[in-house]
Design a protein around this nucleic acid. Sequence first.
DNA 1: AGATATTTGTTCGTATGTATT
DNA 2: TAATACATACGAACAAATATC
Lengths: 254, 254
Amino acid sequence: MINMTDAVRRKVKRSDLIADQIKDWIVKNDKKPGDRLPREHELMALFAASKGTIREALKVLEVHGLIRITTGPAGGAVLMAVPYEQCLESVYSYLYFREISTGQVYALRKVLEPELAASLVNRVSEDEIEELLVLAKRSHPDEGGDWEARRNIELAFHDRLAELCPSPLLGMMCRLLNDVLRSMVLPKYARSHNVDLEETITDSHVALVRAIQRADAKKARKIMAEHMSDVQHHGHALETPVKRNLTLQPNHTF
Amino acid sequence: MINMTDAVRRKVKRSDLIADQIKDWIVKNDKKPGDRLPREHELMALFAASKGTIREALKVLEVHGLIRITTGPAGGAVLMAVPYEQCLESVYSYLYFREISTGQVYALRKVLEPELAASLVNRVSEDEIEELLVLAKRSHPDEGGDWEARRNIELAFHDRLAELCPSPLLGMMCRLLNDVLRSMVLPKYARSHNVDLEETITDSHVALVRAIQRADAKKARKIMAEHMSDVQHHGHALETPVKRNLTLQPNHTF
DNA sequence: AGATATTTGTTCGTATGTATT
DNA sequence: TAATACATACGAACAAATATC
């Protein structure tokens, strides 16, 4: 049965309790990103705890990505909108001891990406359309680079779509799947240089951007659905558990 | 552009670096849930850091839910599969400063829950079928309890489905949406005692379990899709941003 | 550019609590 | 019950970073 009390009961340490108290303080005082938390010494007085304990409590918020701590005068803990990477790191930890197959990832992308595509209609500027077009064309096999680099560009295109998504939840889920694909599946991917498929991919991307530009949600959803079928059939061959990861690799830049 | 180096570069503190080193140690030594990490003193020697720094590093892993630290002899840090609640807490932090509408939540459930239903075919035991049936019937308006209690039972049914899902990713996403609904949307929900709808909901749940029992994936998907349309239309009226939360409430038990 | 004040970061010593044997 | 091995908490001192004058 659903029982959250176990998770809550596990918080017996003073630092964990104080972490929750600080969270309550944030909600209660309606603090926004950029606002500063009280200083360590003030927190020590506020919650009647020693420096070490307060620091452990702040560490909890910092690990969640809720605050950034800087030294020096005018330093301290400032609130911030949690960056996506922090969320990803937690989800990676969650998935580490669970078996994921490539088929499961593709199955999810198949239903989520079409929704993503449709959600972007009337939501992207002309500049962003242009940016997407450039990115889409860069994944064409004639553009050079090796096979893996082109796959990364392809995923970067999907990442950009997710970033532009007006629904934070949908955007997060799509980026999540992209990252799982990138860091866990791609390295195992058989290097099957299927040029026909690669051209189809590029064409789909371009057609998709055009549909979004024309504000044709129905067409955008359809193109993405077909696109997902294409890559699913290709990737489905390797029905293997994905490689596991705990730390984020800084290889995502290109 | 996608640039993970910022997130990585932010880790300049010794404790964060050591946390990553411990993660690498876990992956390298192929440690599994239940295995123990070296003692504090050994870790101090291994990574040449003081007690406080090691403690902060362990704190990072503990916040992610990757280890649980117990006191006493034979105590210390033991590895564990990250509980779902820990993942949820991170996602809550991620969503805290982002605007989410109820419509976005329902739109996602509409595409994910049917997949969840289909994924359960041939994956649940007779005992679990029986358990689901009991749970399904408990949400009937004749079963007593107030409106909110019945909504919670309804969500508990969906939670159980997600727990049984063979795909960790899909299961996690569905539970996530349930929790967002429960803790952020339900409290605002107009108490519209629509008895007809409530009976329809119970019927759908029962029919769904029967379809799963008959291993009829197509029917299961269809029933869930219609079910999602029903509740979406009802909940869609309140197109408001959802209430924000940072700490998990232990109210989920009933 | 350099000194200084302010704030976090790190370390140590010690005392306390807690679970095992 | 007592001895133990360990984590937890506190306080004080010092180190490092950084904004400001």
